[in-house]
Computed example of a mutant assay.
Amino acid sequence: MAKILIIEDEQSIQKLLSYDLNQAGYDVEVASNGKDGYKKAKNGNFDLIVLDLMLPLMDGVEVCKKLRDEGNDVYVIMLTARDDEIDKITGLDSGADDYMTKPFSPREVIARIKAGLRRQNKKVNKEVISLKDITLDLKRHELYLNDQLVTLTHKEFELLHFLLKNKGIALSRDRLLETLWGFEYDGDTRIVDVHIFKLREKLTTSEISIKTKRGVGYMLEDE
């Protein structure tokens, strides 16, 4: 049974999500502010976190950043209060894997959670991929750059893995979106651009690079 943490201060939304997810067969815990949510997320072994952007005591961005800085790659779905691009980019830039805009339907939430859990729990082959100065450990879900561990979110790891498997091939945003977020994903394709940007930042000193192919998408090359 998957274990899910809901960090949401609006009691009506918290109760609705908790009820629907319990009915769907998930083990659910809740927190009503960012500080308590962070403590639970840090100490609990959760498979997925539903995290509101605006929270008392500690906002969702800070909660997510602190977890990522500590190497926690739990799948995070950020909830934003309005259909605002700044909110979405802010949430993703903090390390969230996906976002949802309020109001939303219970079916939509459960569909997104199922998709996230499928990707989080996907079995990886017991092998290592090496190219130039980077090593991707698929069993441990770790990236090493010049033998130094680089912290990646779950989605960043999946993206780099897919780019490495398709080195030298131009991949469209739509293909990356469909492969890594799923056919059922109905969010903006710019989520791909945000994750590419974050991945590039972490590979700044590497001999490999992610090139932008105008009119197509992205391609990984070794310089």
Rank of each mutant, 00 (worst) to 15 (best):
L159R: 03
N146K: 14
Y38T: 07
W181A: 00
G71W: 11
A81R: 11
L16D: 11
L180N: 09
D47G: 03
P56N: 08
G187C: 12
I134R: 05
R119K: 12
K102W: 06
K40S: 04
P103N: 08
I7G: 02
A170K: 13
I110E: 12
G116P: 15
L55S: 03
V76K: 02
G187W: 15
Q14P: 12
R107Y: 11
I6Y: 05
T151R: 12
L16I: 02
D93L: 01
I134K: 04
V109Q: 14
F197C: 10
D59A: 05
C64N: 08
K202D: 02
T151Y: 14
E8S: 05
D9R: 03
E85S: 01
A31Q: 04
L48V: 10
P56V: 13
R214Y: 13
L16T: 05
A170Q: 13
R82Y: 10
L171F: 10
P103A: 05
R82I: 01
F183W: 15
G116K: 11
A2S: 09
Q120P: 07
Q14I: 08
I13R: 15
R200E: 14
I129F: 07
L176A: 07
S94G: 09
S94A: 10
I89R: 07
L53G: 01
V128M: 02
R82D: 02
Y19C: 10
L79T: 04
L51H: 07
I7N: 00
D133M: 07
A81E: 11
N22M: 13
Q120R: 12
R112S: 15
L171V: 02
S206P: 12
P103I: 04
G182F: 11
G34Q: 01
M58Q: 04
